[in-house]
Amino acid sequence: MSKREIKFSDETLALIQRIIRRYPEGKQKSALLPCLHLAQMEFGGWLAPETMDYVASILKIKPIEVYEVASFYSMFNLKPVGKCVIEVCRTGPCWLLGAEDLVRHIEKKLNITVGETTADGMFTLKTVECLAACGNAPVIQVGETYHEDMTCEKTDDMLSAYRNRNEVVTHWDKKHVKAQ
């Protein structure tokens, strides 16, 4: 990894300061989860140890407190990922309605298995637990977007759309930092 300086943009820093003010004095640790989402947004979709140390310094907590939280929650990637993380729901209703076929299809199409990243660094395939969209199963999440009622054909279209856009897609979309 390049040794570039890890620093949030001014806009994001301002947002973090606003978020910290939501909690009582001295309870700025509460802002940790939003901060980690924002860190993933700014620093390539994953949390390097240096990124976590940086978040710790901003919230004035111990790095260890960040590690243990980041490793607990499934949305935080502790290893580098592709520009788009394809998250296929694998639980209950999505499974009943063919999530498994979708995963097989994507694996074949992208020539990777679950947990891997394509050689060009475009896609990472992940399976996730129930996304609370069971009525439109099977569901694939990419960034903040839910792709519902998926079929293999629709998945192909979805993949090519992301490939054409060729942008880093994260759960916390950059446009929301500007909007706030």
Partner: peptide, 18 residues
Amino acid sequence: GRVHGVLNRGDVAEISTF
């Protein structure tokens, strides 16, 4: 001051790094 805790969750949780 706290310097350690538990990493990961469920049955793969571990204390080592801390």
